[in-house]
Write a protein that binds this DNA or RNA. Sequence first.
DNA 1: GGTGTTTTCGAAAACGTTTTCGATGAAAAT
DNA 2: ATTTTCATCGAAAACGTTTTCGAAAACACC
Lengths: 344, 344
Amino acid sequence: MKEATLKEIAHQLGISITTVSKALKNYPDVSEKTRKAVIALAEELHYTPNSFAVNLRTKESKTIGLIIPEVVHHFFSGVVNGIIAEAEKNGYLVIILQSNESLELEKKQVALLINKRVDGIIMSLSNESNNDAHIKEILHKEIPFVQFDKISKLIPSSKVIIDDQKAAMEAVQHLIDMGCKKIAHIRGLANPQNSIDRFLGYKKALEKNGIPFDSSLVYSCKSITFEQGVDFAKQILEEDKGIDGIFVITDLVAVGVLAHFNEKGIQVPDQIAVIGFSNWLVSQVITPKLSTVDQPSYEMGVAAFNLLLEEMVCRKEGKIFEPKTIELPTSIIMRESTMKKIEA
Amino acid sequence: MKEATLKEIAHQLGISITTVSKALKNYPDVSEKTRKAVIALAEELHYTPNSFAVNLRTKESKTIGLIIPEVVHHFFSGVVNGIIAEAEKNGYLVIILQSNESLELEKKQVALLINKRVDGIIMSLSNESNNDAHIKEILHKEIPFVQFDKISKLIPSSKVIIDDQKAAMEAVQHLIDMGCKKIAHIRGLANPQNSIDRFLGYKKALEKNGIPFDSSLVYSCKSITFEQGVDFAKQILEEDKGIDGIFVITDLVAVGVLAHFNEKGIQVPDQIAVIGFSNWLVSQVITPKLSTVDQPSYEMGVAAFNLLLEEMVCRKEGKIFEPKTIELPTSIIMRESTMKKIEA
DNA sequence: GGTGTTTTCGAAAACGTTTTCGATGAAAAT
DNA sequence: ATTTTCATCGAAAACGTTTTCGAAAACACC
């Protein structure tokens, strides 16, 4: 069974390939009669243009690449969703690659995308990644490029981010507003920027409210897991420092804290209030419902694609593109885990 | 800045395009000297082959398409993960499209993938979908095709599934083994096959154990949400029928049930045992930890890709391919929500 | 030096499309 | 009748690659 091509249609209709192509693309210089005949036959033969040939001619693939550390992650799923939806709306397809937080894999993925001649690349860096050769290659090839979430400031490209520091400040401020006097912070891994920023936000919030910073109230995760939360909760109870509020790097860990407090009969929020980060699904279904910081993941995806689109259009017109940075607002979601009945 | 091409390299080296191409692809009929020169210059110019041209020649895109109802879903994320990983291992790229459970969108997606000339398509049908024209088109174009999870038996293609009915039977059997005498079922939507199969499994398990089926113990979800679970839990307590075990269509709903039971001080599992389905992340972090049925999502992805690969290879060799169906085993994960202390 | 063999290279066609530019014929204007 | 305009079409080049097939050169053998 032969693939239907312009040539085949032209042959069967006894006309030229040119005319067939024009008929299908509504060029004005083809008569209504032949146009109808062409369209009819094209339909009959299930003709679909060969995108390779089209792309080869037009130099456009109408495809963008997306590299993220992990698909199976609530936040990234949301972003992916936003990007795909927006891309589709604009006639673009999305190739998704996973770096699995490995720099080596990330380099391979970039090479693949360049090879595929994608029209643009959206990327959230893996933890190890920085201003490396493979990123420079993207810029060198002048491929439109947008970073989101985990970015490197050293790389001159558009960016979509949230202000982790500010969001963290607001979270801690919320705890203070709820009457917490001694607030602990369970922070993330050492390196990632957002882990650092959230820690700094925590510190700033304390400072702003005249609460002295006490480094013994900061617990550092070795991994971002439920169990880690359980362990720190245990430790916090054993140490009995009089902590009455905890700001946790992310919901998953916070849920671990809640689980252990539940088990030990600690009243949340009345004895200890807990606030997480990222608004995972689980935060809404846990008891007590977990207060958290909402990151607009879907909107970040939309924004990232639109920035990319802007650059693609700009580049196509031969203009030079000035990278932009979009900072999306976060919001505190107040739920049971911080809503004390007796306010101070 | 010009893109590096074979022609450019050939020109600079004063040799033919043919030789350059051969040198880069390790053909035996090119001298070591020219090969080295070519490779050196290619590197210097950051040459990467234009995949459009390659694909146009070779008729292979080394890309597969994946259509799923939703990315932001624990189960699908796992499958996506498996597919991407396995595809990558074999040098394939994955284009992911979302149908959002809309038949119309699904049709559009299929058309897009066909247009992109993907080498194969993996798909989980949307709820509305069946043996429609767009699926027939895939088969008609002889594009390798694998269905997974939500499949249509009417479509002759390879399939990767789990035995929902058997899995449900085992779940209910587990409740019975734990001493439950009066078991309710919160079932899913009316149409989807897996919702029906799990219901049938529930029925069969009762039958097998000589427990009469009572349709008043079956509650039908209007939507798959946490709130739905809360509502049914409320209803079950109000009706006070002496139910001591519940098999729930999926973990999210089951967690809603648990939340309400927790609130009302119902002892789970001692008063009422609860088992869910799918092993969502949330089931491991809820209190009490939710027993559930594990679906091997990652493995399904791997299996799906490998079936597709098999068909792609087979087709390329001109042989006819006989569709296969792989049924992956599920397993009961016993956690706190069913482990009664006092067994009957 | 002739014959055969091996090594190394290149011309050319093909993949399917888009687009430019000119050709053709008919209708309209002079 | 001649020119001008207009509508409709097609030839051909180009995109960058792969691969077939034959040519040329280099070498070996008698």
